[in-house]
Simulated assay, not measured.
Amino acid sequence: MGVFVAVAEEESFAAAARRLNMSPPAVTRTIAALEAHLGVKVLTRTTRFVRATDAGQRYLESARRILAEADEADEAAAGVHASPRGQLAVTAPVLFGSMHVMPVIVGFLARYPEVSVTAVLLDRAVNLLEEGIDVGVRIGELPDSTLHAIPVGSVRRVICASPGYLAGHPELSQPGDLARQTIISASPVSPGIEWHLGRGKQQIIVKVQPRLSVNNNAAAIEAALMGFGITRLMSYQVATHLASGQLVRLFPEYEPPALPVHIIHLEGRQASAKVRALVNALVEGLRGNAALAIRE
């Protein structure tokens, strides 16, 4: 099973052999013996790639679970169940990961010196299974019901500006006034941008024309802090600036519904000690984070 999982994940007999410190012929013989035992092909081989068949994909899920349970049994028998060890990979959105996940990971590594973590910070939904990720932090609704998800809080899209900018624009009293303001856009998709505001039946659309467009949320925050204009970001990105008064939240009654934040992983109750430990650390760290509990 271990050899099959390595070949399926690496999509290469040679890469699996290197990973397992085995010879390529030994890996080939092991897979042939497995297929003979099962009576089905679990891998499709061409000159360019190796892929799991449909039967192989089903077997892969079971093999991963069984191997994880075996590892857990080994840990319990060796008396190290409470001492996670080995390599972990975790993913999160870029700015959220930098601001709120990395402190948890650093504390986790300090607590468990025999664990190593690879942090993959990307502003896209990462497929944990396909990309070899153990644990993820996901913002937004979860369409994939195969994931084990633990809610840790929620965030909102908020409109904000500095007190200095607002002092110079007293006419900003209702959402429609945003169309005539200096706008900082953090993710432009077209010259004209529509901001959908409100909840339920109380919704309005404001067309804004950004004077400054950036592809980096941190840069938009800095421009807003300098008093250049108004920006719209996720609440966790500006939570400390709102709390300190450096930025002011505008029209909170028109903010769309909150987006949930979850810790996700694949293994469920069969998770290894290291995955459980990291999940528990993230749940504890993020549930206590004020940035994930912004008020209405």
Rank of each mutant, 00 (worst) to 15 (best):
N21C: 08
G136Y: 09
P163K: 02
S98N: 15
P84Q: 06
V126P: 07
V261P: 09
G153C: 01
R138C: 01
R295E: 13
L212I: 15
L278W: 07
P191Y: 06
I133L: 07
I230Y: 15
T146F: 05
G2M: 00
E9C: 02
A52M: 03
K201A: 14
A77T: 05
S244G: 10
E267H: 14
G132A: 04
A55F: 09
E171S: 10
L212E: 11
H100R: 12
L286E: 02
M102T: 14
I183P: 11
S23Y: 08
R64Y: 04
R45V: 13
V135W: 01
Q246P: 00
K201Y: 13
F228Q: 13
I193P: 02
T46S: 13
L197K: 01
L122W: 09
I159D: 00
I66H: 12
S272C: 05
W195F: 05
T118Q: 03
S235C: 00
L147A: 03
V208F: 04
K274T: 10
R232Y: 10
R48G: 03
E114A: 14
L247C: 07
V120H: 13
L233F: 07
M99Q: 08
V94G: 07
Y236K: 02
H81Y: 10
P84R: 00
M102H: 08
P256T: 12
L147H: 11
S244A: 12
T146Y: 02
E284S: 05
E171W: 14
R295N: 13
A32F: 00
S98I: 15
S235L: 00
R199M: 04
V104W: 05
A258R: 06
I31D: 00
N280M: 06
I150C: 09
Q209A: 12
P163Q: 11
R211Q: 15
G245Y: 09
E267V: 01
G56D: 14
G56A: 12
R180M: 13
S162R: 01
L122G: 01
M22E: 11
F108Y: 15
Q246Y: 03
S235Q: 02
P143K: 06
V158L: 06
L142K: 04
A224Y: 07
L122I: 15
I263P: 10
L43N: 06
I263Y: 03
V106G: 10
E72A: 14
A293K: 09
G56F: 01
P84T: 00
A243D: 11
L233G: 12
S145Y: 11
L67R: 10
S213K: 07
L259N: 01
Q246M: 09
R64K: 14
G136H: 02
N215C: 05
H196Q: 13
V101G: 09
A161T: 08
E69S: 11
T53H: 03
Q174H: 15
P113I: 00
R199W: 00
A89Y: 04
G2A: 01
Q174V: 12
L178C: 05
V152R: 04
G229R: 03
E69F: 02
Y236S: 05
A26E: 02
